[in-house]
């Protein structure tokens, strides 16, 4: 069922949704960018369409609702442990096709990865519903078409294309029909917008031999990469975390266990007891990350981890392009074949 909505009609729909759901969407945060008086697009809870950033790629992904950057899991004191409360009201997440595909990867890691289900993840995940933001054009550094993530057919309540100040909705969830009808929205023929080509194209080799590990191509990043880990933290599929046990300073018998985001590019990730560090060189870290995204994950689950959103390229302070690394790996594999 398709609708075309004006801003006020769309706001009325959002208002209706808000009664039941928290709305989680990309928001342009004024002045909160890295540099003075620059902005950043980060996910946050919203109430109206004017708060949602429909025209820019979000710098950070939706994953922060599912895998918070810092999450207290439980509190402990002496013999008692209490799990931390979470907001367990239902939420609707606005996201683009690449991120819908990223969701599948996160689910894979946290829910369908061997016999264990991550209960902390599941508790949040079970409360989430999704709205697909249609892409009317490709953004800088996107390579979703190459990764096959440019299109999403299902798994969402409705899709919305923001075009010329109005909102074109393709409603999938019949239970919301009344809400849309009440808003006075005009019926129309709408399908979710998606891009069919990106400026950036990559070719992921079908088989990546282990010999690539020893390739010289990684050496360049020993110097170029500064190991800041921004690529991991903006990545919608990076799911690594580490644990922190904090003992409160005024009473060491009380404390909390947190899990916080971790990055395979940042110092400390491969440090083990006794101080050993397995991937000291930044080029080695780059190799590890790259092969996880386009080889190792696939060996286990049958599809690539990287969704081609290009956020890692957008954020890298050293202008290192991950899409270019994929193509370098491809070239190295081809060279090895010949």
């Amino acid at each position: 069922m398709g609708y075309t909505l004006t801003r006020s009609e769309f706001d009325q729909v959002l208002e209706g949704l808000s009664e039941k759901y928290r709305l989680y969407a990309p928001v342009l945060k004024k002045g909160q960018g890295r540099f003075t008086d620059t902005d950043v697009v980060i996910y946050d809870f919203v109430y109206s369409s004017s708060e949602i950033e429909f025209e820019k790629k979000s710098d950070y992904s939706f994953k922060e609702i599912l895998t918070p950057l810092s999450q207290t899991l439980f509190f402990f004191t002496e013999n008692v442990i209490k799990e931390a409360d979470i907001d367990d009201s239902e939420a609707v997440v606005f996201l683009r096709s690449c991120d819908m595909h990223a969701l599948k990867r996160l689910d894979q890691i946290y829910l369908h990865n061997g016999s264990h289900v991550d209960s902390f993840y599941k508790k949040i995940r079970d409360k989430l519903h999704f709205v697909l933001i249609g892409c009317t054009s490709s953004f800088q550094d996107c390579f979703c078409v190459s990764m096959g993530t440019n299109r999403t057919e299902d798994g969402y309540l409705f899709s919305v294309n923001y075009v010329d100040g109005h909102y074109d909705v393709d409603l999938k969830d019949a239970s919301l029909e009344e809400l849309f009808a009440d808003s006075g929205a005009a019926a129309g023929d709408v399908t979710a917008a998606y891009v069919t080509e990106n400026e950036v194209e990559v070719h992921v080799p079908e088989e990546i031999p282990n010999s690539v590990i020893g390739s010289d191509l990684w050496k360049e990043y020993d110097k170029r990469c500064v190991a800041c880990g921004r690529c991991n933290l903006v990545c919608p599929t990076c799911s690594c975390f580490t644990m922190q046990d904090a003992y409160y300073t005024d009473n060491g018998k009380v404390g909390e266990r947190r899990r916080v985001g971790a990055s395979c590019m940042i110092d400390g990730y491969s440090t083990v007891a006794g101080g050993g560090e397995y991937r000291k060189k930044h080029g080695e870290r780059m190799r590890f990350k790259t092969l996880h995204k386009i080889s190792d994950f696939r060996k286990r689950y049958g599809y690539d981890m990287c969704v081609g959103c290009g956020r890692c390229d957008d954020v890298c302070p050293e202008y290192i392009s991950f899409s270019n690394i994929i193509n370098k790996v491809d070239a190295a594999v081809k060279e090895g074949e010949s």
Binding site: F35, A246, G261
Partner: peptide, 28 residues
């Protein structure tokens, strides 16, 4: 305890922490 404490007297307000923070935990 895993979080950052800023010595407000020592801090000169140069913004280096904001520049290097990978998550926007530090902003201006």
């Amino acid at each position: 305890n895993g979080k950052i404490v800023r010595d407000t007297n020592k801090c000169i307000g140069c913004g280096v922490c904001v520049n290097y923070c990978p998550t926007r935990a530090w902003t201006r």
